[in-house]
Design a protein around this nucleic acid. Sequence first.
DNA 1: ATGCTGGATTCACCTATGTTTCCTCGCAGC
DNA 2: GCTGCGAGGAAACATAGGTGAATCCAGCAT
Lengths: 212, 212
Amino acid sequence: MLSQVAEGENQVHFRMHQFLARENEKPDAMLYVQEGWACRYRLLSDGRRQITALYLPGDYCDPQWALGGVASQPVVAITNVRALRLPCRIPSHAGFDGHNGFWQALSGMIERQANWLVTLGRKTALERVAHLLLELFERMRQAGLAYGQQCAMPLTQMEIADMTGLTPVHVNRTLQSMRARGLVELQSKWLRIPELQALREVAALTGQDMAA
Amino acid sequence: MLSQVAEGENQVHFRMHQFLARENEKPDAMLYVQEGWACRYRLLSDGRRQITALYLPGDYCDPQWALGGVASQPVVAITNVRALRLPCRIPSHAGFDGHNGFWQALSGMIERQANWLVTLGRKTALERVAHLLLELFERMRQAGLAYGQQCAMPLTQMEIADMTGLTPVHVNRTLQSMRARGLVELQSKWLRIPELQALREVAALTGQDMAA
DNA sequence: ATGCTGGATTCACCTATGTTTCCTCGCAGC
DNA sequence: GCTGCGAGGAAACATAGGTGAATCCAGCAT
C-alpha cells in the first residue's frame, strides 16, 4: 500500500496513555494505525467521560481531520501504538491512498457512530456490552487479527464503561452475567465468543448495524 | 446558489410523516432542505426508537449518502418539507455547490453526532433536554430562522424523547421543571430561551460542543 | 519471599428514570 | 355546541443502574 521507504520515514510510536492528538490542535497528519488501540473521547467538567471512537489496527485516525478544522476531541493510546503519518487533506476522487480506503473509513466511522447513538440512547447494559464486544471482534476479524473465535481485548472494565455509558461496577456485573450464560469468555486481555449468533441476538442489533 | 430554473425543476415536497428515504434504498440524490424538519432514526425490533439526526432548513440530507452505499436508516418528515434534489456523488475539491458548503455540512454532522454520543452516554435528563433545545435554537438561528430569543419548535414530546433517549413521561417531567426554573418557555410549537447562558450551563457542554 | 499497586469483584443501599394508569385540554369534524 | 382524538400532564409505583465502601487478586518491583 505504501512504500517501505515511506513507511520507515513516517512511522510513529506512542506509548500507552500518550496522546495522539489533543483538543483544539490542528492536526497536520492523519494516522494509519498499524498496531495497538487508541480512542477518542470527551471529558465533562465533573469528570464524566465518554469514549466516542475506537481506533484499531487498520483504522485511520481520524478520518474527519481530512475535512478540515481542528481536532475537537483528544485521542489517547489505550495500548502502545505504532502508526503511519499520512498527509491530511481532502482526497480527490481517486481515493486517498489509491484504494478508496479513505472514503470507506469515513463512511464506516459515521455508520458506527450512528449505531452507538442507538445503543447509548435505547439499550440495556447487557445489550450495550454485547454490542461493544461484538463490534470489537468483528473489526479485529476484518483486520485479520482474530484467531478462530478469539481476539485480543486490551480494554479495562473502566474503559468499557466509558464506551458503553455505564459505571465500571455495572460493567463488571454485566460481564459476570454474560460469562455465567456462556455468552463470552474474557480473561487476561483475550476475548472468546463461543457463539457469535447468540451474542448478536443479545446485542439487539437490527441487521443494519454491522456488515455481518 | 442554484439557478431559479434548477430550483423549480428539482424541488420536491413531502408531507408530515412521509419518508424522504427508506432503509436499504440507494439514494439517487441528496436533498437540500429549504423548509420544514425531518429526522433519521433507527427502530429496534421491540419498538424502541432512537433518532440519530435532525434535518433543519439549510441542511443536506443526508451528507453521508455522497460517500456511497445505501441509506442505512430511514428518514421521515417531521413537518411538511420542501427540498431541492442535488446530484449525489463525492464532490471534488472545489466543494459540492461551489461553496465548500458540503464539506462543512458533513463535518458538522459528524461533530454533532459525537456530541450526542456524550449526551446519550453520560448526561442526565435535564442536561439532555437542555442540549437538544439549545442545539435546535442555535441551528435555527444560524439558518436565520430565529426571532430574537425564540424559534419554531415543531417536535412533539414523543419526538424529543426519541432524540434524547428518554421516555415521553420523563421528557414531560423534565420540561415542567425547566419551565418552573425559568430556563425555557415552550408552547404551541414555539421555543423561547430567556437566558441562553443559563441554559448552556445546564446542558453541561464543554465549550467544544457547539460553535457558540 | 514480600509488599505494592492497579484492576477486578462483591455487597448493601440509593435514586433517576421507566411503567402504568388516568385525567385534561385544544381542536377538527359534524 | 357536541364529540372524538391525539398530545400534554400528573400521580403511584417498579426497577435498572449508580454509589460508596470493602475485599480480593495478579503482576511487578524490591
